[in-house]
Design a protein around this nucleic acid. Structure first.
Length: 718
RNA sequence: GGAUCCGUGGCUCAGUGGUAGAGCGCUUCGUUCACAUCGAAGAAGUCGAAGGUUCAAUUCCUUCCGGAUCCACCA
C-alpha cells in the first residue's frame, strides 16, 4: 500500500486514489454541491475557510451515505476588483494600463491571475477540501465564454437588451460605470449652498435652490418645485435664468421634489443626478455635462474647463457672488466606490442594459421551490425581485468577457445599436459582409460584461450549458449552494433568475446563507483594516482538523460572529485537545488491549446497553443535523458524546470489566471515527488505518446507522 | 426613509413553550497503570426593558432601548 506516514499526507493519498471524483456514469444517486467561486484577488481568508469547510463536510457525509457526490470548484475573474488590485501591483513597479497597452496588459494580468490561483490551491489543499479538481472552472475559460455568449445572444434575440444614454454611477478613478450595489455611502461634512435664480424679465423675483454641488449649475436645464408650492407656483411656465450661463431654463413642477428639504425647489441637472435624470426624461429636457468621465470640468464651464471638481466648486462660488444667498453646514451620505473609495459621479454614459422585469417575474413563480436557510431569505429575495431595476451590464474594463457585439466601421462608426443597425452579435470577428455597404470591417464593442453576468450563469456554465451534457442532466439542479448574505442580490438572485429563465428550473434546491465572520468590533475583515486572521497560521499552529472544528462552531446559519486571533486560538486549542483526547482513547482501547479480550459480545451488560443507546442517539443527531445543515450542532453532539459519555464515563467503568467490554469499546470507537470524518477528515482517516491497517479509505465506508431498539441486544464480533 | 438580524454567566457563542448550556477564563483539589494538550469538585446569568397571549415564556406577539447589516434618487 501507498499509505502516508504522516497524518497531513492523507490528502495526496485521497487525490491519488481519485476519491473526490464524481462519476456521471455511476449508478449512484447524485448529490451536487456548487462551490461559490472566490474572487481571484488576494488570498483566501477565514470566511472562505469556513465556507469551504462546510461544503467539504457535506460532500464527505454524502459520499459515505452512498451518493455520487460532485463538489465542483472554481474561481471568478472578478472584473473590477481584480483589475484595480492588479493595477495597484503594476503601479508599484511604475507601470500602468496605459503604458502596457491592451495586449501586454492582458498577458501580464493572466500571469498575475495564475499566482493568485496558486495560493488558492495551497489553501484548499491544506484545508483538505474534497472537490473534484479535474472539473474546476475559471469564469473566463472558453466553455464559460460560450455560455456567456449564448446568454447574451438569447437576451438580444428576445429584445431584453438595449444600449442607451443612461445615468450611471461612474467611478472616475476606475474609469467605469459601477452598479448601485458596488457603492458605499460615507458621511461627509459639506456645505449646502442656497443659490438664487432670477425669474426671466423680472429682475427682482427669484427662486432659491439648495445644492451641495454648485459646480453642476453649468449643466442645469430646469428648476422643479413640488406641486402647489405656495411661494413658487406662480412662476410655473415661466423661465428662470441660470446664474452662471445666463441661459433661460423652464420652471416646472414635480411631485418627486421633497417639500421639506431645502427650499422646495430643485435645480434639474439630468447629466449629474439620477433623480434629475428621471425628471428630465419625463419632461423631455436636454442633458448637459459640467463634469466629464475623468472627474474634470467640461468645456461647458468655459474658463473652469479642465479643473478638478473641488477646485471648480470654490471658483464657482466666487463666480456666483451675491447669487449665493446663504451657506449651511451639511452632513450627508456621499456615494463612494466600494473598492477605491472615490466619490461617485452620476454621469450619462452609453451602457448596455438587461430588461429585468420579465426575467424576475418568471423567477418569482418558482422561488418557493428553493429551500432557503435561514427561511426568511425567500421573502427578502422576492421583495427585491418585485422591485427590480434594469441591470447595467457593461463595464469599461479590460478584464472580463468582452461584449460580443461588432459594428460595421463604415456604416456605423458611432456604434449605434438596434436591430436595423449595422451590427452583429457574434463571439468572434464576423465573416459576413455588412448588409449596407458590403464591406467586412468589423469593430468589437470596447466594454466588457459585468462580472455577475457570467457569475449569474455559474450553475449552468459549470456543467457545460448550453450543450445538453450528461453532467447537466445528472447534477442540475444543484442540491446545495451556500454563500455569504452580502451577495444575495448580486449573485444569488441573479443565478436564480437566469437559471429559471433559461431552463424553467431552479438552479439549486438548498440555499444556505452562512453568517459573516467579523472582527471583535463587529467590522468586516478587510485588507485595508489589517484585521484579518490567516487560516494558514491557524492550521500551522493548531493543525487542520481543530481549525475546521473551530470554524464549524461559528457556522450557525445566518448568524454573524465576532472573533479575533485570540478567540480563534482558544477554540482551536479546545479542538486540538479534543483530537489529542481521541488519540488517547485509541491508545487505551487498542494499544492497551487485554490479551484475553473477548472477540464477540451481545452487549447485554447494563453499561453496554446504556452507551449503545447513547450512541444510537448520537448517530441520529449527527445525521439529522447534517441533513439540516446544522454543522455546529453536529460537532457539539460528537464532542459531548466522545469526551463526556465515552471517555469520562463508559471508558472509566469499562476498566473494571475490560475483557468483557472490549468489543463494545471497539464498536463505539470505530463508529465515532466514521461520524467524525466529515468534520475531522485527517484525524479520522489516520486512526481508521491504525485500527484497520488493511482497510480502504474511511471515505469509502458506509455512514453509520443507529441500531434500532428492537435489534438490541445484538452480537458484535471484532 | 424602508427591510432584516442580534442583545443569554467575565469573554465568544449555542439552545429551548415547562427546574438555563458549551468553550475559554476563574476557585479548590488531584501527577493510581489512555490522556496534566488531563481528571474531580465548584463559583458565576431575575436569558436587554415593559406589556400581552398561555396553566406555563428566555423561547410566541406588540412596543421601547441598545448594537449591527442590507436596501433607498433626499438635491
Amino acid at each position: 500500500m501507498d499509505k502516508p506516514t504522516a497524518e497531513k499526507d492523507w490528502y495526496n493519498y485521497w487525490l491519488r486514489h481519485k476519491l473526490f471524483a464524481a462519476d456521471p456514469n455511476s449508478a449512484k444517486k447524485p448529490y451536487s454541491i456548487l462551490m461559490p467561486p472566490p474572487n481571484v484577488n488576494g488570498e483566501l481568508h477565514l470566511g472562505h475557510a469556513m465556507q469551504q469547510s462546510i461544503m467539504d463536510a457535506l460532500a464527505r457525509f454524502k459520499r459515505m451515505q452512498g451518493f455520487d457526490v460532485l463538489l465542483l470548484p472554481g474561481v471568478d475573474h472578478a472584473g473590477i476588483i481584480f483589475e484595480s488590485t492588479f493595477n495597484k501591483e503594476l503601479a508599484k513597479k511604475g507601470l500602468s494600463k496605459q503604458k502596457l497597452g491592451h495586449e501586454e496588459w492582458l498577458k501580464q494580468a493572466w500571469q498575475f491571475k495564475e499566482e493568485v490561483y496558486h495560493s488558492f490551491h495551497q489553501t484548499w489543499d491544506f484545508l483538505g477540501i474534497s472537490a473534484d479538481w479535474d472539473k474546476e472552472v475559471f469564469t473566463l475559460d472558453p466553455p464559460v465564454q460560450k455560455a456567456v455568449f449564448e446568454e447574451f445572444k438569447s437576451f438580444w434575440e428576445q429584445d431584453l437588451l438595449y444600449k442607451g444614454a443612461y445615468i450611471v454611477q461612474w467611478c472616475p478613478k476606475d474609469g467605469t460605470a459601477i452598479e448601485d450595489v458596488e457603492m458605499e455611502y460615507e458621511q461627509k461634512k459639506e456645505k449646502l449652498y442656497f443659490v438664487k435664480y432670477q425669474i426671466s424679465d423680472q429682475p427682482t423675483e427669484f427662486i432659491t435652490v439648495a445644492t451641495a454641488r454648485p459646480e453642476t449649475i453649468f449643466a442645469d436645464v430646469a428648476i422643479a418645485v413640488y406641486p402647489n408650492h405656495p411661494q413658487y407656483k406662480k412662476y410655473l411656465g415661466q423661465k428662470a435664468i441660470n446664474p452662471l450661463t445666463g441661459n433661460e431654463i423652464p420652471i416646472i413642477e414635480d411631485k418627486r421634489v421633497q417639500e421639506d428639504f431645502g427650499t422646495g425647489a430643485l435645480k434639474i441637472t439630468p447629466g449629474h443626478d439620477p433623480l434629475d435624470f428621471a425628471i428630465g426624461q419625463d419632461n423631455n429636457l436636454p442633458i448637459l455635462h459640467a463634469v466629464d468621465k475623468t472627474g474634470r470640468m467640461t468645456e461647458l464651464t468655459e474658463d473652469l474647463s479642465g479643473l478638478k471638481i473641488e477646485e471648480a466648486r470654490q471658483l464657482t462660488i466666487q463666480k456666483l457672488g451675491p447669487a449665493v444667498e446663504k451657506v449651511e453646514d451639511y452632513t450627508h451620505a456621499v456615494p463612494v466606490c466600494e473598492r477605491c473609495k472615490t466619490v461617485i459621479e452620476p454621469l450619462i454614459s452609453e451602457e448596455w442594459f438587461v430588461k429585468m422585469q420579465p426575467i424576475a417575474q418568471k423567477a418569482l413563480s418558482k422561488l418557493s421551490q428553493i429551500n432557503f436557510l435561514p427561511k426568511n431569505y425567500q421573502k427578502i429575495l422576492a421583495t427585491w425581485m418585485k422591485e427590480i431595476h434594469d441591470w447595467s451590464i457593461s463595464r469599461n474594463l479590460w478584464w472580463g468577457h468582452r461584449i460580443p457585439v461588432w459594428y460595421c466601421q463604415t456604416c456605423n462608426p458611432t456604434h449605434q445599436v438596434g436591430k436595423d443597425k449595422d451590427m452583429v452579435v457574434a463571439l468572434s470577428t464576423p465573416e459576413q459582409t455588412c448588409q449596407t455597404c458590403g464591406q467586412t470591417v468589423w469593430v468589437q464593442e470596447e466594454a466588457v460584461l459585468d462580472t455577475w453576468f457570467s457569475s449569474g450563469l455559474w450553475p449552468l456554465a459549470t456543467l457545460g450549458w448550453p450543450e445538453k451534457t450528461q453532467q447537466l442532466s445528472k447534477y442540475f439542479p444543484w442540491d446545495f449552494e451556500l454563500t455569504a448574505p452580502e451577495i444575495k442580490y448580486l449573485w444569488i438572485a441573479r443565478q436564480i433568475m437566469i437559471a429559471i429563465w433559461f431552463t424553467e428550473q431552479i438552479p439549486f434546491k438548498n440555499m444556505f446563507f452562512h453568517g459573516t465572520l467579523r472582527d471583535i468590533h463587529g467590522q468586516k475583515f478587510s485588507k485595508s483594516l489589517g484585521n484579518g486572521i490567516s487560516p494558514y497560521n491557524l492550521v500551522q499552529k493548531w493543525d487542520v482538523d481543530p481549525t475546521r472544528m473551530a470554524l464549524f462552531s461559528y457556522s450557525a446559519p445566518g448568524r454573524d460572529a465576532r472573533t479575533s486571533q485570540q478567540l480563534m486560538d482558544e477554540r482551536c486549542k479546545n479542538y486540538r485537545n479534543f483530537a489529542t483526547k481521541l488519540k488517547n482513547i485509541y491508545r487505551f482501547i487498542y494499544e492497551l488491549k487485554p490479551a484475553e479480550a473477548l472477540f464477540e459480545s451481545d452487549f447485554s451488560h447494563d453499561e453496554d446497553i446504556e452507551i449503545i443507546q447513547h450512541l444510537n442517539g448520537l448517530i441520529d443527531q449527527v445525521t439529522n443535523h447534517l441533513e439540516n445543515y446544522q454543522l455546529h450542532l453536529a460537532t457539539e453532539s460528537l464532542y459531548d458524546f466522545i469526551w463526556h459519555k465515552l471517555a469520562d464515563s463508559y471508558l472509566e467503568l469499562s476498566k473494571k470489566r475490560r475483557t468483557d467490554a472490549q468489543p463494545c469499546l471497539e464498536y463505539i470507537f470505530t463508529t465515532c471515527l466514521k461520524l467524525l470524518h466529515p468534520f475531522m477528515p485527517f484525524t479520522s482517516e489516520d486512526l481508521w488505518h491504525q485500527v484497520y491497517p488493511q482497510a480502504k479509505s474511511i471515505i469509502q465506508e458506509d455512514w453509520p446507522e443507529s441500531l434500532k431498539q428492537e435489534n438490541l441486544p445484538f452480537t458484535h464480533k471484532i
